[in-house]
Design a protein around this nucleic acid. Sequence first.
DNA 1: AGTATAGATGAATTTAACTCATCTTTAAGT
DNA 2: ACTTAAAGATGAGTTAAATTCATCTATACT
Lengths: 283, 283
Amino acid sequence: MQVSLQALKAFESAARRGSFKLAAEELSLTPTAISHHINNLEGRLNVSLFKREARSVTLTEVGRRLAIATSDGFAQIERALEEIKLSGYVVRVTTTSSLAALVLLPSLKDFSLSNPNISVEVSTGESLDSLPYVIPVRFGDASTVQAGDIVKCESFDVYGAYGMQTPSWSAKPITIFSTEWKNSELPAPPLKAWLAKNGVEQANITVKKFDQEFFGIQQAMAENELVFCSTTLAKRLLKTKQLQHFGTHSVESELCYYVAKKAHFEGKNARIFLSWLDKLLMD
Amino acid sequence: MQVSLQALKAFESAARRGSFKLAAEELSLTPTAISHHINNLEGRLNVSLFKREARSVTLTEVGRRLAIATSDGFAQIERALEEIKLSGYVVRVTTTSSLAALVLLPSLKDFSLSNPNISVEVSTGESLDSLPYVIPVRFGDASTVQAGDIVKCESFDVYGAYGMQTPSWSAKPITIFSTEWKNSELPAPPLKAWLAKNGVEQANITVKKFDQEFFGIQQAMAENELVFCSTTLAKRLLKTKQLQHFGTHSVESELCYYVAKKAHFEGKNARIFLSWLDKLLMD
DNA sequence: AGTATAGATGAATTTAACTCATCTTTAAGT
DNA sequence: ACTTAAAGATGAGTTAAATTCATCTATACT
């Protein structure tokens, strides 16, 4: 197609509106741009598309032929685009299983109450990360993440299944479930620092590791055990009386939740979702 | 339409060909351009249009929806454009009445024999001059015309109606028909120079003026008189024994035939016509 | 293991798109 | 009849989108 698509669109609008001026308004251009486009089109096609009067233009016969084709052709494309754009009101998020299961999915009903016209689709795994319209909420080493992308720096603490006895850190052997990330480059959960901060280094502790926090948490709840996990994941479970806290002190970690290229998500609905997520994780 | 038409066209081609590389070839672009367009489109629409493999791409469901619409929409427009372009095989020319009547129209059957698929439409007057696809063959002052636009510099001579007596320049009063252009800024026909060149300044000459050469020529033929006109217009009439020449010497003039913005007429058929015209006028 | 293929990313370059300034030709209003 | 308004035309200058170049990545193939 050696003729410019912009020119064809300008022509279509001018033909429909019967005026270069109105076409310019419709397309947020100047009348000059319309005039140039149509003159260019006429030159390329070697035909006259409009008959010019002093203050108006009327379509020639050949102009009418093209007007019908462009009107139908562009309308067809626009209908498909509209359908697709409507589907864009879905905000797509990909994140870890743990955050999805323990934080995001359970909180989504609150989001939906506030934003009934926004649909959020959550997926786990990393295969969608590189898609420009999927918001990747990831867990990573804060020192390798852009400051603007960090949503929440994570702390860790020990929690026990709801209703179990308070552990005696100086007597019986104690088992604590913790996590060993699949990604060996991620900083390990700061258990040693926690032990030191809480003055229980000398406790008789056995650590059982899971490759996801979610698994460790679930197991601890099922077996009335302790779990060393992030405060973010534990928060809701504390509130719903599935976990309990024993008055120990949490420790900061080098880990954080972040959204890669956060500023790139410019869509209105994506911004709304990201604001909500900020609040959700920081509270 | 906030999405780029170029991006939509790139998408349509990639979808049809199932490859960014092939789309790039089809559209005479680089694969990078295709990639940028499609990534931009996906970002704007907030959807994935292609599933990327290592060495290939496959359409997503939503991509298929858009592919159908763009394929149909653009095809519709292109069909109309093809029809219109076919109609562009008509070469449109506007020129003076004199040249049209005495040279161009009578010679067109030769042109058609050589180019049976090209149709030439000739109009007189200046109203079509500014249309970009109408070839204006004009008569003007060579000093104000771009060198590349000049087709033929014009000479003038005296001719008589066929069969009339050879004029005696030194005896009886002589009437010569000449032209006074409507456009007063055009150089007058060089009659004085002709008289001087032919050594007949002392002849007893009365000049009768017409505002078009064609009129003067027609009148001279009808009344067995002399006419001072351009050699180009006289040529065919000499050949067809409607005018005769008396052995006088033609004089060059400051006037020429030219095609305004000649180089702008790039269409194949227009170039063919212009070549033919060059030859016709120069012979 | 090395090479080829094809799409991705981002900076730099190119070019078409667009605007601004000015002009022209009516048409409308006084 | 004269003046003003409306709307398209032309061409130079500016801007922003389109495009390329350079480089990289992830397979697939030999």
